[in-house]
Write a protein that binds this DNA or RNA. Structure first.
Lengths: 203, 203
DNA sequence: TTGCATAATGACTTTAAAGTCATTATAATA
DNA sequence: TATTATAATGACTTTAAAGTCATTATGCAA
């Protein structure tokens, strides 16, 4: 099946542009074809179905990101330098491809199929929670117990994210039934990470 | 419009159970009605449309979580204690409602509409990246520069999450055009948070 | 116990998007 | 240029799920 690489690339890039412009929920095969300036049937000559097309577009996006970061990081020597590079390269990549990752990050399924108004109402709820956390952190900063060089709201947001991520990590590893002790350990880990970071305290 | 509260609650709880069992992508109004043991038309007597039903179910879930955490946290005195309580209460709530949050957390739109095989392939890609980060952290732990009491893979996962969250935070605040300096600042903030935490170093 | 209002039903209609395929266009070869 | 193979087309078919509404059931007040 001698594929016309140019048209394959055209469909891929058109899909990617559409994802950036309208997100996943509004993306249809008709729109992909229209964006690429070809007939819908042609899309199906290069991709088995919508699922395959979306998978290829997403895979490519992550593959490129990973390869670039990996390349840069492996040039660094120490672990600390590696981590620094990893973080800044990852952020750089995200912002270079900002509209793609905006969709990836924000179009979570729990809100993507909802109407604009409902989305806003849920986002407001999330914001209220992170503000709540942010206020606690802010007051600790003002009293001098926490470093004052960070945006307290952002730190609040990150703490919420750490909590969520901890749970995701367990779920992904098929840990659904946690004992009280395991939850306690996780809580302490998150707390210590947030407060003291991961560096070894010199005693 | 004297609503029959019992039936309203019945539809809400049936929807919630369905979300836990099959996720958002497979949830249909027919299934909701079937689960509740009523006719589909009845569902539309209590909820304007599917969007409204989903919004109400999600809102209730988050509202309950927020209220419980808030109640517990406000009983604590210091910021440190508040944060400790917040984290453990949040985790407790998540695990008490584990199948609900599993769907909320894992059914991200970027994979939810994909078939199982595609999901697995994308999850593998994510795993490869977090493993990559985890290995760096692990070697630092082994050499004694990082504390050794944490699961390096989980820390890697959390770092990936911090990076992602940082970007989301900016996007949510309509910051899409970041200067090089802003990205640098963000990178440093994440790095410092991860390494040193948020406590003020005593000089 | 009858009549009226409210609630519930589920077969049916609508909608929207995926996916197909007979037909047409293009390009390569003889 | 004629012949054939390959690529492209878009009107049409299928699918699936949302949403509707004429009909039926239920419960309550007179």
């Amino acid at each position: 099946m001698m594929e016309n690489v140019d048209k394959y690339e055209l469909i891929m890039s058109s899909s990617r542009k559409l994802i950036e412009e309208i997100g996943f929920s509004a993306l249809t095969m008709d729109k992909v074809a229209q964006k690429a300036g070809i007939a819908k049937g042609t899309v199906y000559l290069y991709f088995k179905d919508k699922n395959e097309l979306m998978e290829k577009v997403l895979s490519l996006g992550f593959k490129r990101m990973f390869e670039r970061i990996k390349g840069k990081v492996e040039k660094e020597k120490g672990g600390i330098e590696k981590l620094k590079t990893l973080i800044s390269e990852n952020l750089n990549y995200i912002y270079e491809n900002r509209y793609f990752f905006k969709t990836i990050f924000l179009d979570e399924v729990n809100i993507v199929f909802l109407k604009k108004k409902s989305k806003e109402s849920l986002n407001l709820r999330r914001k209220r929670y992170t503000n709540f956390i942010g206020e606690i952190i802010k007051s600790e900063m003002q009293s001098g117990r926490f470093r004052g060089d960070l945006d307290p709201l952002k730190v609040g947001y990150m703490l919420a994210s750490l909590i969520k991520t901890n749970a995701i990590y367990n779920f992904i590893n098929d840990k659904y039934e946690l004992t009280e002790g395991m939850i306690k350990k996780d809580s302490e880990d998150i707390f210590n990470l947030l407060i003291h970071g991961i560096i070894r305290p010199h005693t």
